[in-house]
Write a protein that binds this DNA or RNA. Structure first.
Lengths: 352, 352
DNA sequence: GTTAGCACTCGACCTATTAGAGTGCTAACA
DNA sequence: TGTTAGCACTCTAATAGGTCGAGTGCTAAC
């Protein structure tokens, strides 16, 4: 049995109706609404087929039908194909966009929080955004300064002007000249290097050149490695609107709500989502995970829509919307599309 | 009518039983359990009085009694008085303490997250902790470094070794000598000053001394002010275990759960709690808010226990536990007490 | 292949009915 | 006068029975 044109139309009708009402939809409803005037009996026959094929489900024998994960998948694929076409046809006007406008923010953190909030309030679903991640961590500048007699502070600037600090305690006081020499050594050797490329041999060579001060070099390198590692480990993720899940009865029971909230609290689970999205995202950069498809265990009852935004070559992050499987995919896809676009242009202006 | 000794005993028995079972407690239960052997009838009479006095409530006519906010308040006050005594008598042994032990953490943020997590998993309630706030922001060290030709990075270290960075774009390249001069000027003038004490006249004087470079001075001062202000505005708060509320049926219905989760998401509400605690905390530093007493609107159905920890003179933060009104106050008070103590000693060791 | 018709199913909702826990009150007791 | 036994009463939670209606599956006719 294959999915002929009529079956497709009926399936889409069922899903759309269900998305609007949130209740199982019966054959009569479809027979009335649809352009292809067919009796409820015929619809019923087709529906039976669709159940067999796994596109829709019957909660119980004498109830209407609801879409299965497979059904949603069909719908979303269809929808995204349409969107593709639309976007080629005309540049979208930005009418419903006002609410989306993100205030100009000076700090990255604040900006990201605002984006998350904007997303969640606009869609009424839960939202998340990951801080941009620098795939290549290239060192730009290193500076050691003496803070107190036995204590220096290392300032490490990497590509994209992310700044890290590390305080280093030293055994013996260090004089200005040596400090200057160390700074020269560090910068001439390391500037422009990717963190991954700092090999042991380079470090050994630097230590040799540093002579007595080899210990400090080691500490600085450690500090560099440490701060980068820390950065990789806990990818910053901002969330907003987790409480929105309570608006959807199918997610609001204790068991499920607790799982979802937990995922939002323990950002580690969301980290998965980010990596998954970054690695699998296709050319469009938008990804839809339905139910069981979700990379986050605790969100198997949700749908998750993610997208990557790009700040600059090799620097990107992920935004995501988490809601019920019967979410308004149309709206969510538009919103997320617009937002990534806006983010891109914003970063261009805001690049510091 | 006043609260005589027998009434007190009965009241405490009711509350303790309710804390254990979570169900309305009847007169028979009390008459059996209690040392002061009285018949259920007598207990009933007393209970009626206690209802009149507002210490306990009757969910419906033929049900047992549950404590009112006023009842809980009585219980907690009693408990805290006892604790006071206990602590004077003997230094508490640290037997149940293992789980509480917080791993040594190098970064403040990670430490705070761990503390929050430790609190929530140990108590099975929700927990929060605010980053330590420096009441007096004293400048310790300022360093300008050239990063690129037209760009310098200002590193600002304040009391407690909190480090802020600010990138400053300048119109014309600056030479090493001038940079050195500026650094000297900044440090000799500002070191050791409290932020609040940097007056306009001081700034004017510095600008005058800086001559051509007055613009940079202004930018640095702005950066200092800015970074301090940003710090004050969004007080960092870390939370953990919000999902624990689902373990308590009286908090787990949609309406209430949503409110509580929202409070945890929008940290602004928790900020209130921190300020409230900091300003009102008595000598012991532990505060208990029961139901309506809570400074956080969305937590009127919870009890909130907070405490201040002190890192150093004038530097403190707040930890808090949020749970149902029938929380195990005894355990919570002990835990929070121990944790603040441990935090204090940890900060002493970890002070860098 | 499509449709009308009809018996059937099953959850949602409403209404007793019952059981049990707990009360309030009265009358007797120390 | 405070305490207690006894008893009728109240109210909830749980169970069972009954009805309604939406929706189905199937058959037979078109």
């Amino acid at each position: 049995m294959n999915l002929d044109d009529r079956k497709k139309k009926i399936l889409l009708a069922i899903i759309k109706t269900y998305l609007e009402t949130g209740e199982p939809v019966g054959s009569r409803t479809i027979s009335k609404i649809e352009g292809l005037s067919l009796s409820s009996a015929t619809i019923r026959n087709e529906m039976a087929d669709l159940v067999d094929m796994g596109y829709i489900l019957q909660p119980h024998t004498s109830a209407g039908r609801i879409p299965s994960d497979k059904g949603y998948r069909f719908y979303v694929d269809q929808l995204m194909a349409e969107k593709e076409m639309e976007l080629e046809e005309r540049e979208r006007e930005t009418d419903e966009m006002k609410g989306l406008l993100v205030e100009k923010a000076d700090k990255m953190e604040r900006l990201l929080k605002q984006v998350a909030r904007s997303l969640s309030t606009n869609t009424n679903y839960a939202a998340m955004i990951s801080a941009p991640r620098y795939n290549i961590n290239r060192l730009k500048f290193i500076q050691l300064s003496r803070m107190e007699a036995n204590r220096i502070v290392a300032v490490i600037v990497v590509e994209g002007n992310m700044i890290k600090n590390q305080i280093i305690d030293i055994d013996e006081p260090i004089d200005d000249e040596t400090l200057l020499k160390l700074n020269m050594l560090l910068n001439t050797t390391l500037n422009g290097m990717a963190i991954e490329d700092i090999s042991l041999s380079i470090i050994a060579k630097m230590k040799q050149q540093a002579g007595d001060q080899a210990g400090i070099i080691a500490e600085v390198i450690d500090a560099v490695a440490e701060s980068i590692k820390a950065d990789e480990e806990d990818l910053e993720i901002y969330t907003s609107g987790a409480n929105n899940i309570f608006k959807y009865p199918e997610l609001a029971d204790n068991q499920k709500a607790s799982e979802i909230i937990t995922a939002f609290e323990e950002k580690k689970q969301l980290t998965n989502l980010v990596y998954e999205t970054l690695s699998h995202s296709d050319e469009r950069g938008i990804q839809v995970y339905i139910g069981e498809e979700s990379p986050v265990e605790n969100m198997k009852d949700c749908s998750v829509v993610t997208a990557t935004y790009e700040l600059d070559e090799g620097i990107h992050g992920t935004i995501g919307i988490i809601g019920p499987k019967r979410m308004d995919y149309d709206k969510v896809l538009s919103t997320i599309k617009k937002l990534t676009t806006e983010l891109d242009s914003m970063f261009k202006k805001n690049e510091r």
